[in-house]
C-alpha cells in the first residue's frame, strides 16, 4: 500500500498530488487525465445528514444552521458542511472518515433540533454501506473482523466464512464500519440515502 503524506492524513477528498511511479514496471500512480476526446465524470460528493433528516430540499429550506445538533452529538460526529460545498455549507453533515454516527439510543441530535429538520418520526437511516470485496482484507485470506464487531446496528453486518457482508435492509449508513476499517484502502463504500421522506406527522 502507499501511505498518505503525513500532512494529508486522514485521507481527504482530494487524491494526493504525487509524482508518477511504478511497481515492477506497472504504473500505479495518477497522472493528469489523458485527453481521450471525452470528459471524465467528476465524482459527486456524497453528503450524509444526521439521523432523522427530512427530505433534502425541505431540509435545506428549514435548517437554520444553528449548530445545536452539532453541540448535542456526544461523539463529535456531526460537523458543519464545508464552505466549498455550495448550499450545503454550514448545514450539519456527517463525515464517517473523520467520525462516524454511533447510533445513540436516544438520538440527542434529533432531540436538539428546534426547526424540526431532524425528526424521530422517520427511520434514522442516513444511507447504506457496502463491502468492496477486492479491498477487504477478510476477502484476501487474512483475518479481519473489525467492521462486524464494531457495527452498532444488530444484524447489519453478517460474517460468513470470515467474510463480512452488509445487509442493506438493516444498515443505517452510520459509517462506523467505514471509520474503523483498517484495510490499506478503505473497503467500505458508503452511499447516502437519496430520497428521504418529508417530516410526516410528528408523534
Amino acid at each position: 500500500m502507499r501511505y498518505p503524506k503525513p500532512e494529508e492524513e486522514p485521507p481527504s477528498e482530494a487524491p494526493p498530488k504525487t509524482q508518477p511511479r511504478s511497481i515492477g514496471g506497472i504504473n500505479i500512480a495518477p497522472v493528469p487525465p489523458t485527453d481521450l476526446g471525452r470528459k471524465s465524470v467528476s465524482p459527486a460528493i456524497p453528503v450524509f445528514r444526521p439521523p432523522g433528516a427530512i427530505d433534502e430540499s425541505q431540509f435545506l429550506a428549514g435548517c437554520t444552521r444553528c449548530g445545536d445538533c452539532i453541540t448535542a452529538c456526544p461523539y463529535d460526529a456531526i460537523r458543519k458542511g464545508s464552505d466549498r460545498l455550495g448550499n450545503v455549507a454550514g448545514t450539519p453533515v456527517i463525515e464517517a472518515d473523520t467520525s462516524a454516527c454511533m447510533m445513540c439510543e436516544d438520538f440527542p441530535c434529533i432531540a436538539s433540533c428546534e426547526p424540526g429538520v431532524l425528526v424521530d418520526s422517520i427511520p434514522p437511516i442516513m444511507g447504506t454501506a457496502k463491502v468492496t470485496p477486492h479491498l477487504c482484507l477478510a476477502h484476501h485470506h487474512t483475518t479481519c473482523t473489525v467492521c462486524s464487531e464494531r457495527c452498532p446496528v444488530d444484524g447489519a453486518i453478517t460474517v460468513t466464512d470470515g467474510k463480512p457482508t452488509v445487509d442493506e435492509d438493516t444498515c443505517t449508513g452510520c459509517g462506523v464500519c467505514r471509520y474503523v476499517c483498517p484495510a490499506p484502502e478503505n473497503a467500505i463504500l458508503l452511499m447516502p440515502t437519496f430520497i428521504r421522506p418529508g417530516p410526516g406527522r410528528r408523534s
Partner: peptide
C-alpha cells in the same frame, strides 16, 4: 461505456 482516469497502463471505465 464512460471513460475515466488513466495512468500508466491502466484505464478506469464505467
Amino acid at each position: 461505456i464512460d471513460l475515466g482516469e488513466s495512468a500508466g497502463s491502466k484505464l478506469a471505465i464505467v
